[in-house]
Nucleic acid binder design. Structure first.
Lengths: 206, 206
DNA sequence: ACGATATCAGACAGATCTGTCTAGTCTGCG
DNA sequence: CGCAGACTAGACAGATCTGTCTGATATCGT
């Protein structure tokens, strides 16, 4: 059996499995923390490379420009959120879909209560990128489309007669929850969102 | 009867009635358009004074620093939104409170569908200012407290048994509506938010 | 006419930003 | 050993940003 390294440029699988440079990872981790905590435009390359402990030339060998780093940051957030929620849904595969929805929102509310929570990275990034055609905005769209689809799917399985309409409402609640956990009291929002879901979701099967 | 100008430093009324410098107004109008459309950090002073047709010294004679301009921008947004919504509520003084709520949300959804809509200026500004103690963030808080209070008040008058709980939900819907009108399809959201309100609000009196 | 005030045009300083480039170091593999 | 690739340190260019300052011009009340 060949080691990963012995398989070189032998197809897409090899490409995907290629180990990530530690310098690149450090840069992306640092950028993720800073971009999220302070905003994309407020954080300069110099600061990222200083805090990541990476030389400038190294940075530019991994990312052609800052824009690509921003895009990589958001893309990773998208993949990460998806993986997290998908894992949660898989854990609850036996539960009724309505319960899965409740748990997803509960998880989001709990996450929004953690120290350092600063809202939804996609909403925040969209605020800084007005051009809807920008790659950053396209990742935001991808994230929204995924979440909307997931909501519609779960609503359908929960017996909602109009899953698409309901998904729109759950999207409102999701965005409101993210914003509210940043700007208002996250602890209070936990019960608020529970209450909202009770009013919005189709009643649990008797 | 004295003219406005003949009354000088004769009390708070005179101060409030003092005419605004046209240059200052031009600066604030230009800044409002640019900050909202492109974000605060993305727009520099040079650009604002160029597009406002104002000299740099003039700008700095009216605003000690950019921060004050940003604050003035948000403050004016806050006052403007309040005035608009209060005027709407006054127009509908005869209507039941439930109807007033529906109309407020309908107005917001319609506003969010206009070309150039780029989300809620307060949410967007908050995304760019991480420090909760910053004056900008305090204006954001003031706006949120006002809207939350208005919602609770109207819900109370609409016969909701738990107006505070309901106001939290309406806050979720408001934030979600603003974000959604920016990032999704505003036309579709009009019916979505109507639908959500029907599920959330206490039923209309028979 | 005169003085106060507002405004304009633009140079300037100092910081910071992005991105390029040079030159040297370290590491692992054949 | 010898070489290739990844990395480091930091100078540098060119743009841009905030904020200050000088000096000229226009307006307006008295």
């Amino acid at each position: 059996m060949p080691t990963k390294d012995s398989v070189r440029s032998a197809g897409p699988a090899a490409t995907a499995a290629r180990r990530e440079s530690p310098a690149r990872r450090r840069v992306l981790d640092t950028a993720t923390a800073l971009f999220y905590a302070e905003g994309v435009h407020a954080v300069g390359i110099d600061r990222i490379i200083a805090e990541a402990g990476v030389a400038k030339a190294t940075f530019y060998s991994h990312f052609p420009a800052k824009q690509q780093l921003v895009h990589a940051y958001l893309d990773e957030q998208y993949r990460g959120q998806r993986a997290l929620v998908d894992a949660l849904a898989e854990d609850l595969a036996g539960e009724p879909a309505r319960e899965v929805l409740l748990r997803i929102f509960a998880a989001m509310a709990e996450y929004g209560g953690q120290a350092g929570f600063r809202g939804c990275p996609f909403i925040n990034a969209a605020a800084e990128f007005p051009d809807a055609a920008h790659p950053v905005r396209q990742t935001v769209q991808a994230h929204r489309a995924w979440f909307h689809g997931l909501m519609a799917d779960l609503l359908g399985r929960a017996g909602d007669p109009h899953p698409e309409a309901g998904a729109g409402i759950l999207m409102l609640l999701r965005d409101g929850l993210a914003v509210g956990c940043y700007l208002d009291d996250p602890a209070a929002l936990r019960t608020v969102v529970e209450d909202a879901l009770e009013r919005v979701l189709p009643p649990a099967k008797a």
